[in-house]
Simulated scan of single mutants.
Amino acid sequence: MGDIVVGTASWTDRTLLASGWYPASADTPEKRLAYYAKQFPIVEVDATYYGPPNEQTTKLWAQRTPDGFTFNIKAFSLLTGHPTKVSAIYKDLRPETDKKNVYPGDVPPQAYEEIWSRFLTALDPLAQAGKLGAVLFQFPPWFGIRRSNKDFMLEVAERCKPLRAVFELRNASWFEGANQTETLDFLRAHELPFVCVDMPQGHKSSVPPVVAATADLAVVRFHGHSDKWTSKDIHEKFGYEYSAKELAAWAPKLRDLSDKAGQVQVFMNNCYSDYAQRNASTLIDLLDSD
């Protein structure tokens, strides 16, 4: 079996802080990160989707965690084609517009290039410390299967080198009928790591939980099965606690995936209260039980 590491998609969520998961002694951001890093070997940083990080912050993350700890970074929304708040963009690169949200096409080409450069440069302290795992590119639901989107994924992978980009597709067209084989073959041909997601089914934004290795790294993200998936309230959307039975059904799939990929990163993204942390601990125990 290859290497499987399990963590969560947050360590700072306010409902987690209120849940009592952290001991009273972990009363500062520094102590909370240190405590988290004793429980899990990896974390996914989702805050970087809403606003790009700065080097001072990533330097502190590197300093406050032990050797061998890994951070995966979610790509800034503008770099994945999502609508992005103008206020989230670097001050000197903000487009002159009355719009609250902008897309890549609303930003001057030179500014767009500079945003890419600054985002990736901010990750240098983690990379230099050997603590940067991968950069998650989660594409919008309207990013469907077509040649231009495949070309953009190749462009993203090239831009990120030598950093590793991993790809989460959220449009069902990639997986319909023969498209699924075409999608996975494309990813394998270019050694692009595929991100499998477990999420509520039956919605317009639903994609199936395809478990597949397309490179020497595979990522699995657990979004939960909330019956309020379409809610604008992020805690209602992700407020789902997996049962031990549900997680036990995933353990053999993850082991099989690690045989094929070599390394598997697993993230519980059901970030409400301490659901993700408790589910991650349960899944680790299940994987260790054999």
Rank of each mutant, 00 (worst) to 15 (best):
M1E: 06
I4A: 04
V5G: 10
T8C: 15
T8I: 11
A9P: 04
A9I: 02
W11H: 12
T12I: 12
R14S: 13
T15V: 05
T15S: 15
L17E: 15
W21C: 00
S25F: 03
T28S: 14
P29R: 10
R32N: 09
Y35D: 07
Y35V: 10
Y36P: 00
F40T: 02
V43R: 03
A47P: 01
A47G: 03
P52N: 01
N54H: 06
E55L: 14
Q56T: 14
T57C: 03
Q63I: 07
Q63L: 11
D67R: 05
I73N: 02
I73F: 12
F76K: 07
S77R: 13
L78D: 09
T80S: 12
G81Y: 00
G81R: 08
T84Q: 08
T84A: 11
K85V: 07
V86Y: 05
A88W: 08
A88C: 08
I89R: 10
P95V: 11
E96W: 01
K100W: 05
K100Q: 14
V102T: 08
P104Y: 00
D106P: 05
P108S: 06
P108I: 04
P109R: 06
Q110Y: 04
A111E: 11
A111C: 09
A111G: 05
E114L: 02
R118M: 06
R118C: 02
R118A: 01
A122N: 07
A122F: 03
A122Y: 04
L123T: 04
L123P: 05
D124I: 03
A127Q: 09
A127N: 10
Q128T: 12
G130A: 10
V135H: 05
V135N: 03
F139A: 03
F139C: 10
P140K: 00
F143E: 07
F143A: 13
G144K: 09
G144N: 11
R147G: 11
N149V: 01
F152D: 15
L154P: 15
E155L: 13
R159F: 04
C160I: 08
K161C: 10
R164G: 11
A165H: 01
L169N: 12
L169W: 04
N171K: 02
N171S: 00
S173C: 09
W174Q: 05
W174M: 11
W174K: 07
G177F: 14
A178T: 08
N179G: 13
N179W: 03
T181M: 00
E182F: 01
T183E: 08
A189L: 05
A189P: 00
A189T: 12
A189Q: 13
E191D: 15
F194N: 12
V195N: 13
C196G: 14
V197G: 08
P200L: 07
Q201N: 04
G202M: 05
S205A: 15
P208Y: 03
A213Q: 02
T214D: 10
D216A: 03
A218Y: 06
R221M: 09
R221C: 05
R221F: 00
H225P: 03
K228S: 15
K228R: 08
W229A: 15
D233T: 08
G239K: 05
Y240L: 11
A244K: 11
A248D: 14
W250C: 10
K253N: 03
K253E: 13
L254N: 00
L254Y: 02
R255L: 06
S258M: 02
D259A: 02
Q263I: 00
V264A: 01
F267W: 02
F267D: 01
M268I: 06
M268C: 04
N269P: 09
Y272C: 12
D274S: 14
A276V: 06
A280M: 04
L286A: 12
